[in-house]
């Protein structure tokens, strides 16, 4: 069932730059599926291959091996001309906006339609509507140099929507923007996904971007997919090192602790409110635990996150606390043996 809904199917994709001893394996054997209408995140640290991967989705980079199916069409088998036509259905926005600086905003939005051969009057009308849609109707006659970063990205989004794409690729689209503007651009993407049904693929190095809008995420590390799944799952229970590095970027701050104490990391997997746990631990078991660090947030209306707890130094009290926490629903516990190192 799911296969038929997939808008992007990547199978065993590899990309190698250069050859011989200098060859750089940017991507190695990547397979993933992006469903129609979802907001899919691809996250990774610099050099993980995210930008190469997204460029393989519209074949700005030609994969060394593997296939890229967009809407059932194998892009790798298309001629240059056919590929140019296919690209109208899978458009892209960038970190640097990449607007035409010598054209007005309206003319920028007209540009892809001009390329597609849409009659000028019709293109202008639609461009005006798209600028209204992104909230910049009054800026039609302005040049990009007169706009702020967030406004430029809105024009770029309007431009990307001009050819009625099925997929919108966002390559670090908010990385050059301040936090407030980032939130508003992400809000716009979410709204467009909702209203137009356009599938959105978000490439980023910021976990906050993923948690803000994505439903599913793939974590890219060293050119391959380290982990993939529902954002909530991965957030609450990262199983790979790459995922942990992204979920807890700063690590957790050290608190004065007796050397002998055991430290556990507990993860809230949604559904449970986390605040009462520590209190009920104290009331029900009479055990006091130290909160060494916490990173809890609200993802998709559910509480997820982790807490680092220092158990009491006394072994029997520690065991009591541990079994109490283990008994809770939607909470997983994991011992951190090397905390004191």
């Amino acid at each position: 069932m799911r296969v038929s809904e997939a808008i992007i199917q990547i199978q065993h994709l590899s990309k190698t730059f250069g050859g011989g001893e200098d060859a750089v394996h940017a991507l190695e054997d990547i397979s993933l599926e992006i469903q129609q209408g979802e907001i899919f995140g691809i996250i990774g640290l610099s050099g993980a291959g995210k930008s190469t991967l997204v460029r393989c989705m519209n074949l700005l980079e030609r994969p060394t091996a593997g296939t890229v199916l967009v809407d059932g069409q194998d892009l790798t088998s298309l001629s240059e001309k056919e590929l140019r036509l296919a690209r109208r259905k899978i458009t892209m926005i960038f970190q640097g906006f990449n607007l035409l600086m010598q054209r007005t905003c309206l003319k920028n939005v007209c540009f892809p339609m001009e390329i597609a051969g849409v009659p000028s009057a019709q293109a202008k009308k639609r461009a005006g509507e798209l600028l209204e849609l992104v909230g910049l109707g009054e800026k039609a006659a302005a040049y990009p140099a007169q706009l702020s970063g967030g406004q430029k990205q809105r024009v770029a989004i309007a431009r990307a929507l001009a050819t009625e794409p099925k997929v919108l690729l966002c390559d670090e689209a908010t990385s050059a923007l301040d936090p407030t503007t980032t939130v508003s651009i992400l809000g716009l993407l979410k709204e467009l996904n909702h209203r137009l049904g356009v599938t959105v693929v978000v490439i980023t190095h910021q976990m906050s971007v993923i948690e803000e809008i994505c439903s599913r995420v793939a974590i890219l590390d060293g050119g391959s997919v380290a982990e993939m799944g529902e954002v909530q799952e991965i957030f609450s229970n990262p199983t790979t090192d790459a995922a942990r590095r992204l979920v807890y970027p700063g690590g957790v701050s050290a608190v004065q602790m007796p050397e002998s104490a055991r430290v556990v990391r507990i993860s809230f997997n949604g559904g449970t409110a986390y605040d009462p746990l520590i209190a009920s631990l104290a009331i029900d078991c009479g055990v006091k635990v130290n909160i060494l660090g916490a990173d809890t947030r609200n993802v998709g209306g559910k509480a997820v996150g982790t807490m680092l707890l220092g158990l009491p130094a006394h072994p029997s009290e520690a065991a009591k606390a541990l079994s109490y926490i283990r008994a809770q629903k939607n909470i997983t516990v994991e011992e951190v043996p090397d905390y004191h190192e």
């Binding site: 519209n58 700005l60 590929l83 140019r84 036509l85 296919a86 690209r87 109208r88 458009t91 892209m92 960038f94 640097g96 990449n98 607007l99 035409l100 600086m101 010598q102 054209r103 540009f111 892809p112 001009e114 390329i115 597609a116 431009r159 050819t163």
Partner: peptide, 25 residues
Amino acid sequence: RGVIEAAQAMGCSPWQIVTKVMLPE
């Protein structure tokens, strides 16, 4: 380079990139 890449991503032919992007920009 980014603007040229954007034009390629929009399906511009090399001729269109020269006449509609590079020369006017």
